[in-house]
């Protein structure tokens, strides 16, 4: 099920660990980097590659919020909904994004472009309200700026 690159990367992770289970989170990330998300088949394949129980891999995969157990869009929007953003305009941003994209938290646009998710404080409170798209942080946001920012993501 795993392709050659994924297998190589997971073998390399395993080589660095004394305990195979320590490689589980990173192995999940390897698959997610290649496929965007982690399917049940991938969970089994990772377990097989690491020589650990599939239930162990699944318990980790379903616990951590940056591991996606469902398909996501080409770009993932992580909108901070924690307290500093809550007092500086999060609600307006969320309403604008949900209207503009036609989805709510947890949803993916029908064209597969964006998935919208809430995220715990991004540590950018000096630039609140903030969000992260893929690996890029955007701060000091106003609803008016959102459309322009989203246009940069195809």
């Amino acid at each position: 099920m795993l392709n050659e690159r994924e297998r190589e990367e997971i073998v390399e992770l395993l080589r660095q660990e004394t305990h195979a289970s320590a490689a589980i989170p990173e192995a999940l990330k390897v698959v997610q980097r290649h496929r965007g998300w982690v399917s049940t088949e991938a969970v089994r394949a990772i377990a097989h590659a690491l020589g650990v129980d599939a239930g162990e891999v699944e318990s980790v995969a379903t616990f951590y919020n940056l591991i996606f157990r469902q398909p996501v869009g080409r770009h993932v929007i992580l909108l901070c909904d924690s307290v500093s953003c809550a007092v500086t305009g999060h609600d307006d941003l969320r309403a604008h994004l949900e209207m503009h994209l036609g989805i709510t938290f947890g949803g993916t646009t029908p064209d597969g472009r964006f998935t919208l998710l809430p995220i715990a404080c991004l540590g950018a409170c000096d630039r609140a309200p903030a969000m992260m798209i893929d690996r890029t942080l955007h701060g000091n946001l106003t609803p008016a700026q959102l459309d322009e920012i989203l246009n940069n993501y195809a």
Partner: peptide, 11 residues
């Protein structure tokens, strides 16, 4: 693992 809401110092 700086995740305490409102905290941005370790970053």
């Amino acid at each position: 693992d700086e995740m305490e809401p409102g905290t941005m110092k370790d970053r």
